[in-house]
Measured scan of single mutants.
Amino acid sequence: EEAIQNFKALLSDMVRSSDVSWSDTRRTLRKDHRWESGSLLEREEKEKLFNEHIEALTK
């Protein structure tokens, strides 16, 4: 649960536009030290959280 919250915070800070792809964003996020705290999450979970974040940005 904490890993999810940390990853959501990372997305909020780093992803402000809804027209970015997961693969491009992932490359950028990996450069942030907080990426490692999400290592407990599966890749699919990270992508799902990313997609939810993008959906929220479009509303």
Rank of each mutant, 00 (worst) to 15 (best):
L29A: 02
H53K: 01
L40T: 14
S39I: 08
T58F: 04
Q5D: 08
E2P: 03
A9Y: 05
S23C: 05
S21A: 04
G38M: 14
H53C: 00
T25F: 15
I54M: 09
R30D: 07
L49K: 01
V20Q: 09
S39T: 10
A56Y: 09
L41M: 06
L57G: 02
D32S: 01
I4H: 13
L29S: 01
I54D: 06
Q5L: 09
A3V: 08
E44Q: 11
N6R: 10
S39N: 14
S17W: 02
T28V: 14
N6F: 00
L10N: 04
R26E: 15
Q5M: 12
T25N: 01
L29V: 02
E1Q: 07
E2D: 02
S17F: 03
L10E: 04
K59S: 11
R34L: 03
T28L: 14
F50W: 02
R26Y: 14
H53L: 00
F7C: 03
R27V: 10
V15W: 00
D32P: 00
K59N: 08
A9C: 06
V20A: 13
E1K: 10
A3W: 02
A9N: 13
F50C: 02
S37W: 11
S17V: 07
S18C: 10
W22A: 04
R30P: 07
Q5P: 02
L40C: 13
A9F: 05
F50H: 09
F7A: 05
N51K: 08
E52G: 04
W35E: 09
T28W: 10
F50R: 01
F7V: 00
I4A: 07
S37R: 07
S39V: 10
D32L: 05
E1F: 02
E47H: 11
S12A: 14
W35I: 04
K46D: 01
A9Q: 11
E55I: 08
T25Q: 11
K8H: 03
A3L: 06
E52N: 03
R30F: 04
R26P: 01
M14D: 04
H53F: 01
S39D: 12
S39K: 14
S12D: 11
D32N: 02
W35H: 06
S39F: 11
V15F: 00
L41W: 02
R27K: 14
I54A: 04
T28P: 01
H33T: 05
K31P: 05
I4G: 05
E52F: 00
L40W: 08
A9G: 08
R30M: 15
S12W: 05
S17N: 12
K48C: 06
S21Q: 08
L49N: 06
E42T: 15
A9H: 11
D19L: 02
G38Q: 10
I4S: 06
R16N: 09
D32V: 01
E1D: 01
R43H: 15
D24L: 04
V15Q: 00
K46C: 11
E42M: 13
E2I: 09
K31Q: 13
T58A: 12
W35M: 07
L29R: 00
M14Q: 11
L11H: 01
Q5N: 11
D13S: 06
F7H: 06
E1L: 05
D32M: 07
E52Q: 10
V15S: 02
L41N: 03
K59F: 03
S17A: 05
W22T: 02
S39E: 12
W35G: 11
S21I: 03
E52D: 11
D24K: 05
L11Q: 05
R26Q: 15
A3P: 03
R43S: 15
K48A: 12
Q5H: 10
R16T: 15
E52H: 05
E52C: 06
S17R: 12
A9V: 03
S21H: 05
K48P: 03
N6D: 09
D13T: 04
R43K: 15
E52R: 05
D24V: 07
S39W: 10
K48I: 05
G38K: 08
R16W: 02
I4M: 05
F7N: 07
E1W: 01
S23Q: 15
W22Q: 06
D19T: 09
N6M: 07
E44G: 13
L49F: 03
R34V: 05
R30A: 14
E44C: 09
A3I: 11
S37V: 10
R26I: 15
Q5E: 11
L11G: 06
M14V: 12
F7I: 03
M14T: 11
W22P: 05
Q5A: 08
E47K: 09
R26S: 15
S21W: 00
K59L: 10
L10G: 05
F50T: 03
L11P: 04
T28C: 12
T28D: 12
V15I: 09
K8L: 01
E47A: 05
F7T: 05
W35L: 02
T28Y: 08
